[in-house]
Design a binder for these strands. Sequence first.
DNA 1: ATATAACTATCGGTTTTCCGATATTAAGGG
DNA 2: CCCTTAATATCGGAAAACCGATAGTTATAT
Lengths: 100, 100
Amino acid sequence: MTRHEMKGFLSFLIMWFIYKKEMTGAEIAIELEKRKGNKPSPGTIYPALKDLKDKGLIKDDRDKKYSLTKKGEEELDSHLKTFFDTFCDLDEMKSCCRKK
Amino acid sequence: MTRHEMKGFLSFLIMWFIYKKEMTGAEIAIELEKRKGNKPSPGTIYPALKDLKDKGLIKDDRDKKYSLTKKGEEELDSHLKTFFDTFCDLDEMKSCCRKK
DNA sequence: ATATAACTATCGGTTTTCCGATATTAAGGG
DNA sequence: CCCTTAATATCGGAAAACCGATAGTTATAT
């Protein structure tokens, strides 16, 4: 089956993942593979994590488990709002998808 | 309120729009502004339309109203599947968003 | 018919986003 | 302790995505 890139949501997804449960970089990569079908390369995942950390949106403990900072939670919330505004007709999209 | 780019979904959204209802470039720009908060420039919207047309995914009539081709419908369906696989926990995301 | 405005189109270039290659560090087994 | 493997990190660069500026086209009103 064809897979589509749909770039631009990597940071958003990472933040969403570790909001739900603190994760290491490797665990994040596995979760992305499950959903998107292809595993992101280390050169994708770790710079993304570094960037989020530099922005103060995520933090890591000794075991390299990442979690959101307070600022990160606010940012995620803001992202979610934009997301659901942009895809305001998700139900319609979903039913359309199932029909075929 | 902060708006986030979330790049990479322009073509997807355009195809979704004109699947629901045939639209001109200007109408598509207005719909994008409604959802995302900022109106894409002509330099964004028309090259995107040209690209989709060159790929045989959309077609236009005399009035420049765009609609999906058969191939475009298949492509949209495939995109939708990828989308809902990637965002497989939309309900959770939505309830999280509302909580705050 | 002509002026004005709105829409469409194209180009070059900038930014964003991602990845391959490579290096470094940490973990586990013998 | 050393070897192997896995995880993490960094860099340069490639590709994708987008936009500003500009120009051409069409529509509308007077």
